[in-house]
Amino acid sequence: MSIQHFRVALIPFFAAFCLPVFAHPETLVKVKDAEDQLGARVGYIELDLNSGKILESFRPEERFPMMSTFKVLLCGAVLSRVDAGQEQLGRRIHYSQNDLVEYSPVTEKHLTDGMTVRELCSAAITMSDNTAANLLLTTIGGPKELTAFLHNMGDHVTRLDRWEPELNEAIPNDERDTTMPAAMATTLRKLLTGELLTLASRQQLIDWMEADKVAGPLLRSALPAGWFIADKSGAGERGSRGIIAALGPDGKPSRIVVIYTTGSQATMDERNRQIAEIGASLIKHW
């Protein structure tokens, strides 16, 4: 067993022997301040990774656009098919120029040779490549099948209805392509620590998230040296922004954090800054 596999296998073990965790309302004060600064709703939840206990939450059962955070769930569904012998990570998928959609920095470079399922998941999570996500959605049967996968996990809230990039439209009061912070946090925890996926697939999923290259201005910008984070960000229309993450000190994750916002007129930089400040408060009061 590799060191990384050992780390993920012992996530519940280490967490069980940690000192009790206590909620700190100071972080919620910052979440509410972010709402004021952005002029928009902000949803927040913080779960203990081992027990699933909610440590703090704000608007945990209000719907927010998922945006690209759905790509972690998508690759979880792909990995479940791999575990069941219905898919192979090494299978190569070929596609054409007509398949390319807006923001496809990886797939646009491989029109000639195609990409493997493993490479597509890596591109979808680490670079948020939209064509990679659409190609992977095709392998599982489309958005409705991802929703069905989530329902089978016990998540009857999260739903995907459309493809990239239309799913980022974020129309107010439109339930399409949305989740709730509580539902997303619980589902992410199941994917990373539950028995739904094999140990190898859980490790692969967290490795992809740990290698995320496009979430630097968010929670990662607030992390002290030595902290662990595996995350996936999302951005959408109407001032929408979000991030889902597993993080913790001492090089291992111990909490799940989900943050979503929508309806702001603020710039992307300002949305990023507010999420980073929430992260800084979380870490300060850990």
Rank of each mutant, 00 (worst) to 15 (best):
R273H: 11
P181A: 07
I171A: 15
P165K: 07
L218Y: 03
D48E: 11
D231K: 05
E175D: 14
D48T: 04
K144W: 09
A34P: 01
L135D: 01
R159K: 09
A182R: 14
E277I: 15
I256R: 01
A183P: 07
N50G: 12
T179M: 06
L146P: 00
A280P: 02
V42C: 05
P165A: 07
T147S: 11
A123P: 00
A183Q: 15
G226E: 10
G90Y: 11
L55N: 07
A225H: 12
A230S: 05
L199K: 15
V257L: 09
D36W: 15
T69Q: 04
T126I: 08
C121T: 02
A132D: 02
S51W: 05
R162E: 04
E164N: 03
E175Y: 14
Y260H: 03
R271K: 12
M66T: 07
C75G: 08
E175P: 14
H24F: 08
K213M: 14
Y44S: 02
L196Q: 13
L135K: 06
R162V: 02
L38Y: 09
L197A: 06
I244Y: 00
Q274H: 13
I54W: 09
N50C: 08
S104I: 05
P181W: 02
T27I: 10
I244E: 02
V72R: 00
E46S: 14
I171L: 15
E166I: 10
I283M: 10
G52C: 03
G39S: 13
I243S: 03
A148E: 12
K213H: 10
G43D: 03
L199E: 14
S254L: 11
T187L: 09
G236C: 02
M66V: 11
P25C: 10
R271P: 06
I275F: 15
E56F: 03
D174W: 02
D250R: 13
I275G: 01
R159C: 07
T193N: 13
S51K: 09
T198R: 11
T158C: 04
S96H: 14
R255F: 03
F64Q: 01
D36A: 14
C75T: 08
D155T: 03
P224F: 03
D231I: 05
V42S: 04
S128F: 01
R63P: 08
M67Y: 01
L120N: 00
R176T: 06
D177Q: 01
P25I: 12
A124C: 08
D212S: 07
S221N: 11
E35W: 00
